[in-house]
Design a protein around this nucleic acid. Structure first.
Lengths: 213, 213
DNA sequence: TGGCATAGATTGTTCTACAACAACAGCCGT
DNA sequence: ACGGCTGTTGTTGTAGAACAATCTATGCCA
């Protein structure tokens, strides 16, 4: 949670994640600076930060565009997720404060599913995995996860079928939480492994369907 | 390997890692820009990148200083290393091209040890672990490792006793490589786990000795 | 001595200017 | 008509100056 004060970067970040600028969109320095009411220099500094975070792509002399994850990116993101999340869960303690966040996220996702509110469902789903990573108490792993989760949201934006992406995993979230509490980290980690493989397959399926037909 | 062309950021990065600016040193925008022959704006952009990479710390209205890892940072870095490196090694294939890099790093470290060249020994040692991470074929994990390895180098700089930090691990590097090739990833991962625990203890010991006496 | 106000220095941001480069359009020759 | 070349145009990259906002330190006063 570094720099809540970092207004411009965070504002841009939120707008990109919320889909205000579609993946692949070119972000012109001049027009965007004017639109946001900041100078080009200030905007360029924000661009550098977002570029390091993988949210925008910066090509010298060609400007920045909103990142548009490829299939390879999605594969890599899920590989990293499997490494980080399963390790965090396997070594996590059921007494860790993050468990509360996990429970709240599960309940929120169930509520959202019932209301068919796919937007908040997606957020709750991600909050669940965020809580899993928080079990590790590692700022650096949390930061990695924050960045790849943001990238993944961009991929979700392109697919634009949130129900298929998130709805099937609500019951799995609940089941995973119960496994963790009743049978411990290693058992839950094994379950999470399958969970993530399935999730990856879902995303990749929608992705290739999108690109080919 | 993004942006070898990114001259200023990379130049600064190298100079910091090489210890030209001691950890904790405040980097004045005006004087450093003048020294490097660039404008303040350009330098500030580089600062933002390095700040995201964890190499410098940026405090609003107080400027940036070279990061000075605390004990908590070292602990977190080693936690992340254990997660990432053991996972990469466990799932890695002995046929992966990175194995060549592992072997070369081992040989280089043995040569450096014999020559008592601690500088190249430290580099070779890190190259060995870099190659381990490369087994995972994950750009995002490689990036994470690159950043935390750089941070760790800053900690090493403060300790300033490279022989104690690196020499004991040369034989372990060779042993780990052989375990990996002869008994496979999982066995090597278990060995690496102990290796990293020992390495962490070495660093933390030198660290607390440094701070207290 | 301790607290406060002022002065100095640094960062945050904007603006302007121009060089470097890339994309595009039109021209030329074949 | 087509492919390649060249100039035009727009954008990014960088520099420099200016000023506001904020921190730091000095020195004053009680």
């Amino acid at each position: 949670m570094p720099d809540v004060e970092d207004t411009l970067t965070n504002a841009l970040r939120r707008r990109i994640i919320d889909g205000e600028f579609a993946p692949g969109t070119r972000l012109s320095e001049i027009s965007l600076a004017e639109k946001l009411g900041v100078s080009r220099n200030t905007l360029r500094e924000a661009f550098r930060v977002l570029s390091e975070q993988g949210l925008v792509e910066h090509v010298p002399h060609r400007g920045v565009s909103v990142a548009s994850p490829t299939v390879a990116d999605v594969v890599d993101i899920y590989r990293a997720r499997r490494y980080v999340e399963t390790a965090a869960l396997a070594a996590g303690s059921p007494l860790h404060p993050a468990v509360t966040a996990m429970r709240e996220a599960v309940e929120q996702s169930e509520t959202s599913l019932e209301a068919r509110d796919w937007r908040t469902l997606g957020t709750a789903n991600m909050a669940f995995h965020d809580a899993i990573v928080a079990l590790a108490d590692s700022p650096r792993l949390e930061r990695l996860f924050r960045d790849i989760a943001a990238e993944l949201r961009l991929a979700f934006l392109e697919i634009d079928n949130p129900e298929a992406l998130h709805a099937p995993f609500v019951t799995r979230n609940r089941a995973l939480l119960e496994t963790f509490l009743e049978h411990g980290g290693p058992a839950a980690a094994a379950e999470l492994q399958d969970y993530l493989v399935l999730s990856e397959r879902t995303v990749l399926g929608a992705f290739t369907r999108l690109r080919h037909g």
